[in-house]
């Protein structure tokens, strides 16, 4: 029982919170799970100050990437400053003026996410940004289960296995792509990175499944 006065006011947020209770279990078969691959470009790498400038998602179902179901947004951020991150993704703050408001984008994102596990490269950072936006606009937390392709790769691919040294850096998306021979498209755009990440994820899933010699479960991924 959730007390009515603790319910978020925004209907999308309410629905989001509702469905979190029916999230896939750790032993659910990956093939039956809907995954959302996500990538965000931000104004910088400071979780507290910086903001999302663009966001893209794609859906994976039956462990197939559905090209028909792809979303990407440019987000208008009035007070985002010019930081070094602009050199990476090339989105100037002025350009985001064409974008939608953060609240509108987050409201659209909520039903897409639902209770699906969210896949991304270094997804932790993106998740933090989204979490803050959710709190700002709807007073809710971002609760989806996360699957980090960088983590998965370090676990699964010998080339990136943990060395035990503190200064080891997790592999970048480029590292993974060149290792797995996946051609990258539109690097450092939300849409392009999402697509590339999705292919990396599917590749890793196939490898893990082959190693395990049984159906892949959610717990094998997160």
């Amino acid at each position: 029982m959730i007390w009515p006065w603790k319910q978020p006011r925004h209907p999308q947020a309410r629905a989001y919170k509702q469905c979190q209770r029916k999230a896939p279990g750790r032993r659910d078969i990956a093939e039956n799970i809907r995954f959302i691959v996500l990538d965000a470009e931000t104004s910088g790498f400071d979780r507290a100050k910086d903001r999302m400038l663009s966001l893209a998602t794609m859906r994976i179902e039956d462990l197939e990437l559905h090209l028909s179901d792809m979303n990407s947004w440019l987000i208008y951020q009035a007070d985002a400053g010019l930081t070094e991150a602009v050199n990476v993704h090339g989105i100037l703050p002025s350009e985001t003026a064409d974008g939608e408001s953060e609240q509108a984008v987050m409201a659209a994102l909520l039903p897409i996410l639902g209770n699906a596990p969210v896949v991304g490269h270094h997804i932790g950072f993106d998740a933090d940004m989204i979490d803050q936006a959710f709190r700002r606009h709807f007073g809710i937390r971002f609760r989806n289960c996360l699957v980090d392709t960088a983590e998965l790769a370090m676990r699964e691919l010998d080339a990136f296995a943990r060395t035990g040294y503190a200064n080891q850096r997790p592999p970048t998306l480029e590292d993974l792509c060149s290792h797995l021979e996946i051609s990258m498209v539109d690097r450092h755009t939300a849409a392009g990175d999402t697509f590339t990440t999705a292919q990396v994820f599917l590749t890793l899933c196939a490898r893990i499944q082959k190693r395990l010699k049984r159906d892949l479960q959610l717990r094998d991924l997160s």
């Binding site: 197939e64 990437l65 559905h66 292919q199 599917l202 899933c205």
Partner: peptide, 14 residues
């Protein structure tokens, strides 16, 4: 055509 499609990954011998 592409926007209605899917991407699928297969291991060897699938």
């Amino acid at each position: 055509l592409a926007s209605g499609g899917r991407v699928k990954f297969h291991e060897a011998d699938e």
